[in-house]
């Protein structure tokens, strides 16, 4: 099992980035072994569709859960379709802390988009 978290810098000690589609880095971690890898978000500079791109990334990484602070409608619908569970990091400050809280079952799961779309034309 792998989970994906959004982070402000490429480290497990970094703060959680509150945005999913526009988060700076994606940290993919195996919560059992705590082995992790950081990836720059490929959609950070996308003019639109960052949410669907981020969902595609999580799916390609075979993440079963995603932890972040905000899931727009495109990200939500795509993750939902991919069968990837969504959680809010809540009061967790760092990525490491969010993983611990996830393992302890303390994170709130997301059942609907947490905000309106961010796309503009």
């Amino acid at each position: 099992m792998k989970i994906l978290l959004t982070a402000t810098s490429p480290s497990i000690d970094s703060n959680v980035d509150p945005r999913y589609g526009r988060g700076a880095y994606f940290i993919v971690v195996d919560p059992d072994t705590m082995e992790w890898q950081a990836h720059p978000n490929p959609g950070i500079g996308a003019s639109g569709g960052a949410g669907s791109l981020a969902a595609q990334f999580a799916s390609n990484q075979q993440a079963s859960s995603v932890v972040s602070g905000d899931f727009g409608p495109n990200a939500y619908n795509a993750l939902q379709a991919a069968g990837i569970a969504m959680y809010l990091f809540g009061s967790s400050a760092t990525v490491k802390e969010a993983i611990e809280n996830f393992k302890a079952g303390l994170l709130e799961s997301v059942g609907a988009p947490t905000g309106p779309g961010h796309h503009q034309h």
């Binding site: 959609g43 996308a46 003019s47 639109g48 569709g49 960052a50 669907s52 791109l53 969902a55 595609q56 799916s59 495109n74 619908n77 795509a78 993750l79 379709a81 991919a82 069968g83 990837i84 779309g117 796309h119």
Partner: peptide, 20 residues
């Protein structure tokens, strides 16, 4: 190929985002 990320392949599902 999609510049606008309007189509995503998520495991065994391909999803279209009409608004993108």
């Amino acid at each position: 190929i999609c510049q606008y990320h309007a189509i995503a392949v998520l495991g065994k599902k391909t999803l279209v985002f009409p608004q993108l």
